[in-house]
Design a protein around this nucleic acid. Structure first.
Lengths: 211, 211
DNA sequence: CCCGGGTGGTGACTGCGGTCACCAGTATCG
DNA sequence: CGATACTGGTGACCGCAGTCACCACCCGGG
């Protein structure tokens, strides 16, 4: 029975949940930290725990034959719906999760999940909301891909990043952007130039400024 | 208090659910039928009930500026996740639902849903599975759109239809296919020809045969 | 009967964006 | 110091697929 020094931290981070659920999660969850750049989950892997992000940010991709498409970000108080399905259906993951900003996650062991879902309506509700959010996000994404041209998609992406980071100046390489959008580096360069002449962005040495 | 003559029918169709839940659904649900071609739900509409399909088939589209993309089908014992979110979050629908084969649906009033979700773990589980299924379907869809060419997408679509209807001969117009794939009629004609020369399909007067 | 609506079929054009090849600038490291 | 490996930048090319403008059918209704 080792005393958990993290308990105060956890209690603070889990305040958005009802108390009995907090206790259960703290007792059975596993607190972990990962530095930016870590790949938490690869395609085809099985998942043994559902991650609940407390701090930092994860990026989730679909990956097909070395090509990637950014699906969504996981921010504090959020979780990963793909891991839900992997756990609830016991199927391998079809996505890739990477750490974008150093994260602290609470790993919820799959054994207890079903029971918790029954006992704590709040957790159930949280999971539902997650599914619903991710679904509409994915839907918007597919609409972007199918019905909008690259300039629009790129601008939408940049605005997302702006909201996400809180900065109007983004320090992203063209290559990174290309990967997130499933496009090519040169194409992004060209398109950014185009957006600049249109006055939507300004290209600086330090990064891209959204106007 | 009118006697429900549909009760036997409903009991038969709801056998996949536990008995108390069956009773609750039968008591409060509304049985409805719609002929093929009916549009049940338009973009921007609010939803007041969650449809549970008992017979027939619905088609669900995303619609953006007169362009469509087929998202999924709803078959017996299934429901519509977009209506979940519309009900649970009280937001307007962003999709279109059409009847493809005459359907019988049981409409579950939104007022009771939350309570049922709490009281009947089975319903809760059913909803989760629905979300999960739709999510992976949508994911596959987006991968198709982004990473695969039209011939592949078309072939995948045709094989879906084959599984769905059970017939290897499909009676679809090129226009219908184009709408489902968010493409254009002429393009589908061309691509079908290409698939025929490759030996993947055979074009007959009565329809398309999948080989 | 013709007319209007639906089918499928085809050729020509076009543009988006992915690919290739290459260049220059900068930073890091042995 | 040169070697290497990142970055962004650019011009040429080209293929997929969306669009336009047709045509030939076939069918049902007035």
């Amino acid at each position: 029975m080792k005393e958990k020094p993290d308990k105060d931290y956890l209690l603070r981070k889990l305040r958005f949940l009802p108390l009995p659920l907090q206790e259960a999660l703290i007792l059975n969850g596993q607190l972990k930290q990962f530095p930016a750049g870590t790949t938490l989950l690869r395609e085809g892997q099985y998942v043994s725990a559902i991650p609940l992000v407390l701090e930092g940010r994860l990026k989730v991709y679909a990956e097909v034959e070395a090509k990637r498409l950014l699906l969504y970000y996981i921010r504090p108080e959020e979780s990963c719906v793909m891991s839900f399905s992997a756990v609830l259906e016991d199927r391998p993951s079809s996505i890739v999760a990477e750490v974008e900003e150093d994260v602290t996650v609470l790993l919820l062991p799959r054994e207890q999940i079903h029971e918790w879902l029954r006992h704590y309506p709040m957790l159930n509700h949280l999971f539902f909301r997650q599914y619903q959010r991710r679904y509409t996000e994915l839907l918007q994404n597919i609409e972007q891909v199918l019905f909008h041209r690259l300039p629009d998609r790129l601008l939408a992406y940049l605005n997302d990043r702006k909201r996400l980071t809180g900065h109007a100046k983004l320090t992203l390489t063209h290559r990174q952007i290309a990967e997130d959008l499933g496009s090519a580096r040169e194409v992004i360069t060209r398109t950014l130039k185009k957006l600049e002449t249109e006055g939507s962005v300004r290209l600086l040495e330090e990064g891209i400024e959204i106007l």
